[in-house]
Amino acid sequence: MSDRGLRISGLRCSVEGTEILKGIDLVVEPGKVHALMGPNGSGKSTLAFSLTGHPKYDVTGGTATLDGEDLLGLAADKRARAGLFLSFQYPAAIPGVKVPNFLFAARQAVRPGELTPAKFRALLLEMMDVLGMDPSFLGRYLNDGFSGGEKKRLEMLQMAVMAPKYAILDETDSGLDVDALKDVGESVKALRASAEGRDTGFLIITHYPRILQHVAPDVVHVMMDGRIVKTGDTELAHRIEREGYDKIREEIGAVA
């Protein structure tokens, strides 16, 4: 039991020769929601990419396991099949690849053979309804010409379809209007309420605490300059909302 969770220990990562992550320790337990906050450039996306296996991100030290399985030695597709999911801050557009074909390929890759295409389509329409997505999405090419809000909704639809064991949401909330934000919150709730997603652990990367009103975090972390400098509960998020990051920066500066 004790090795369950998305367990990150002493993780260091460089991008093009510059060290960005300087030793990250973090454990997301099954079924729990962790929020990761921090100013721009602090290394939040770098953490997301190094965990999911982006080839440009060199992990130079530390470990990361998913329910006991080593992630760092695996290619990106195998990490996804192990149960890890990333909602991208800036999803790529892929002209010519239709949304439903892509979603079916992704579902088949992570959960082979569980659904017939017909059942899959029914499931898809149901989930799109939760996300307030028009069925015409199914005729479009992946993220091609999508608005910011449409891209984020599609990320959430992918999460719903793949039902990962651990989901990292990289600023899925940023740039969204109130309705879209609510839909993102609903889709996280819907996954947690489903049989497949009951034990899904979340790492929600965000600038703003407002998403946390929709999805209450169990733990809140603050990242600065490639390190997690503070860990607390929801109160920490509220404090950041009131005071910004400068106060925390002063505090840790004083301690260091």
Binding site: G53, H54, A76, D77, A80, A92, A93, I94, G96, V110
Partner: peptide, 30 residues
């Protein structure tokens, strides 16, 4: 083929070869 597009697809569990195939075929769709 765009590396970011490939990473995006492989991060969904799709193998690199399959992702390349889907992107290359998609290229002609229009």
């Amino acid at each position: 083929i765009d590396e970011e597009a490939l990473f995006y697809m492989t991060s969904r569990g799709i193998t690199r070869e399959e992702a390349e195939r889907m992107i290359a075929l998609g290229f002609f769709e229009p």
